[in-house]
Amino acid sequence: MSEIVLQIDGQEVTVQEGATILEAAQSLGIEIPTLCHHHKLEPYGGCRVCSVEVESRGRASVVAACLYPAEDGLVVTTKTEKLSRIRKSLVEMMMAHAPDSEPLLALAKEYGADKDRFKRNQSFCIHCGLCVRYCSEVKKKHALGFIDRGAKKRICFIPEIASKECWKCKECFPLCPTSALQASFVLTKSLTFGGEGEE
């Protein structure tokens, strides 16, 4: 493994090849907001609140710090007006789904986001994928997944697996930033599992 030297907010940092920008920033004590990232899970890149600006070979772009691999000579900026505007809008879009989510409220405070900027959407889910990924990557049960695409994309418990596995696990519930996953599970349970697996 070779070492990589990059620059974050004007400070030079050396990391091992394969490290992400987020990890490199953390090693410097620079904070980058995250939401869909979890240390036990593969980086995902869904929420994009970790967006940072990078300049590589003369080209500037906005990338997700939780995913983007550190490159030699990369120049990273984690705080700019543009990034604040982007993060603010992202938070506002997610708050249209989950206005009471604690992590979102905290981010809203930091970036001055208005939870009512966009019309309230009835689905609570912000598609961070934490529950889906935890179940497949850590528990290896695949009891829930995403279905459909675009605005219709949603999470869904797979009844055949969920009825056997979920009631005794429920480890994904506290991961959900909107604390509404549990409600969804209860609903699925009452609709599809019947009395089976009741505590």
């Binding site: 929420c47 879009m93 997610m94 598609h127 994928g129 675009g150 219709k152 994309k153």
Partner: peptide, 16 residues
């Protein structure tokens, strides 16, 4: 909006 894969917020929510 229909064809977005729906994974990331700026695309899924932003286009909407």
């Amino acid at each position: 909006a229909d064809e977005s894969c729906g994974k990331c917020v700026p695309c899924r929510e932003g286009i909407q």
